[in-house]
Computed example of a mutant assay.
Amino acid sequence: MSENKETSTFEPVKRGRGRPRKDSEFVSLSKELIAQKALEIAGAEGYDALTMHRLAAEFKATPRALYNYVTDRQEVINLAVERFLSINPLIEFDCTDWERGVREAYNATRNAYRAYPRASQMTIDEKLVVKPGPMRNRLIERILQFYVDIGLELKQAVALVRALERDVLGFVMHVDYYYDRRSANAPDYISSPVPVQQLEAYPEVSTPLARQALELPQQDSDELFEEVIELRLLAIERMREINGVAGQEQE
């Protein structure tokens, strides 16, 4: 996996007419700091929570201090999205070991989404025109090329890119978000198909298989995510079989 080093080119914007003097606020800020804090707020609470007043409060400053560095809230949103996308590494795929490449793509995406679980929901929280920068273009093109190179049709590759985002985002929001925030003695509502509390609440419903499933070993979130990857690997292998490329590496 290639290392994705961030370089900061952020500079304070020039003060325009009516803009407060920079020395009017005794706070050390930069676009980089604002972008990171904005991502932390949006990642934990969603973009609706990312207001200029809330952001300023995180720095113990007033909103006018922020305007020495950003023009408006829209720019703050764009900075947060761009920073979120920049933490996704550009994976160096090896087509001779495509299963490893799929695993790396899934795990890297999970790590990014898990750190800022709501940051990818910019189109859900509110209707904004977001300019996320070129990083997403590079990420999508690279993984599309990988899927095509291992023998999939472009339509199949597109479907798998969509599946990657749905699989990981759904898992992070439904499973990781719960596991990462629950207390040590909290009941497990995730690893079983139907929690025992739900089964006991409706004893009149016959659920022999669901009750038998409760006796299986409990799984943590990493083990549950491995199931997601394994299911996707099986789907990819089947697509390659249909396309007549599966097994050619050993020939």
Rank of each mutant, 00 (worst) to 15 (best):
N88F: 14
R136G: 05
H53L: 11
R73N: 09
I124Y: 14
S24L: 13
A35K: 05
F59I: 08
L144F: 06
Y47R: 03
T71P: 00
A108T: 12
I34Q: 01
F84G: 01
Y67R: 07
T96M: 07
E153H: 11
A157F: 07
S86F: 04
R142Y: 02
A61T: 15
V102D: 04
I87K: 04
S120A: 13
V129Y: 11
T123Y: 11
A115M: 08
T62M: 15
N88Y: 14
V76P: 02
A157G: 15
K22T: 03
A57Q: 15
R110E: 07
I143D: 05
M52I: 14
K37F: 01
P132S: 11
K131M: 09
E92Y: 05
N88R: 11
V129G: 09
Q74T: 13
R73G: 07
D125G: 09
L139I: 13
S24K: 12
P63S: 07
V102I: 15
L66G: 05
A56I: 05
E40T: 00
R142V: 02
V148F: 03
T51Y: 04
E165T: 07
Y113Q: 10
S86K: 08
R54S: 10
E32C: 03
V76D: 04
S24Y: 10
V161G: 02
Q74K: 13
I140Y: 07
T71E: 13
A65C: 07
R136Q: 10
L66I: 10
I143H: 07
F146W: 02
E141Q: 13
Q36L: 08
Y116I: 02
A42Q: 05
D125M: 01
T51K: 07
A112I: 01
K37Q: 09
Y147I: 03
K131L: 08
I77L: 11
A108L: 06
I124F: 14
R142D: 07
R138F: 09
P63V: 07
A115K: 10
E92T: 10
K31F: 09
R142P: 00
E165P: 00
G43H: 06
A57R: 13
T123R: 11
T62Q: 15
A57Y: 06
A159H: 01
Y47F: 15
R100G: 12
Y47W: 06
E99M: 11
S30P: 06
V27Q: 05
G46C: 03
A49V: 08
F26K: 12
E58A: 04
V161Y: 10
I41W: 02
C95R: 13
F146A: 00
L90S: 08
I143P: 00
V130S: 11
I140V: 13
P89C: 05
R110H: 12
K131Y: 09
E104I: 10
A108Q: 14
L55N: 02
V129A: 11
R73V: 14
L154I: 10
L152Q: 06
F59D: 08
W98C: 01
A157H: 05
F26E: 11
Y116C: 04
R73F: 10
F84E: 03
P132C: 05
G151E: 02
I34W: 01
A61C: 15
K155H: 12
K60P: 00
A56L: 05
P89F: 04
S28F: 12
I124C: 09
A35Q: 06
R138Q: 10
A112N: 08
A105F: 04
